[in-house]
Nucleic acid binder design. Structure first.
Lengths: 133, 133
DNA sequence: CTAAATGCAAAATCTTTGCAGCCTC
DNA sequence: GAGGCTGCAAAGATTTTGCATTTAG
């Protein structure tokens, strides 16, 4: 009997991917596709936007990064290694920062009035960051 | 001295706008452009998507509705008349619901460690809605 | 009647995909 | 070497805009 087709794809290590991962993990908060592209081009000027999109997709699938979407409608990406944390968006500069602390204690699992079973939550703060004070 | 140009545009009441406003305000939670279009077409089958986009933009500008963006990346719209409230997104059906109650008490204004001055916050829960239990 | 609003289709954006050549393994 | 990766450009998808016609006031 022939063995089943493995759906695992061999992935190779490339300068592009290493650079994109580094740019995302070194950021103080989640960043957009455009920001990733701009930052990574400092290392690889020829980097194409398609490669950025493809790499983000790959990193999302293999669980290296995760998506953060705030009310400006843009998707941002951050390391999935970060534990439970929340975000702060500065209305002045528009940047998003990771918060070390969690100002509220919410049980991870709970049921809300109305019959909503909660398994996770997300909290985002808005205001002014220290740099823009 | 001539009076300054008024930037106020005369807006007219149309069936399209009335219908779109009604669809948004009657929804149990924020809904997407596509949902608005589909629901409004039940009343006005000829309604064009461009009119939906233009009306949403108008309603956002005059403060009738507001945008809600969750991690699925889609923008949703809801009545701006709703007070401070939070959202619940069902992982099963994907719909978003308004929550009447606020399970956490957060001071609207506060400063977080690191020097972040907060003026607002947003909380979203994920899980299963009563219909999908 | 006058000018705002609509519907349609073209244009502008943003993201994905096809391909030939390049580069890991 | 073989097949995954990349850059480029074409293709899709989503949102905006131009324009002639319709319609509110």
């Amino acid at each position: 009997m022939s063995r089943m087709t493995t759906h695992r794809t061999n992935t190779r290590r490339t300068t592009q991917r290493d650079t994109i991962v580094e740019v995302i993990t070194q950021s103080p908060g989640p960043i957009t596709v455009e920001q990733i592209h701009e930052l990574a081009k400092k290392t690889i000027p020829s980097l194409g936007i398609a490669t950025v999109y493809r790499t983000i997709k790959l990193l999302l699938e293999n669980g290296t990064i995760q998506t953060v979407v705030l009310p400006d409608g843009l998707s941002r990406y951050e390391s999935a290694a970060l534990g439970h944390h929340h975000h702060f968006r500065c209305r002045a500069c528009g940047n998003v920062f990771d918060l070390d602390i969690c100002p509220v204690k919410l049980p991870k699992d709970m049921t809300l009035p109305g019959g909503y079973t909660v398994d996770d939550h997300e909290l985002t703060f808005y205001g002014t960051c220290p740099n823009c004070q």
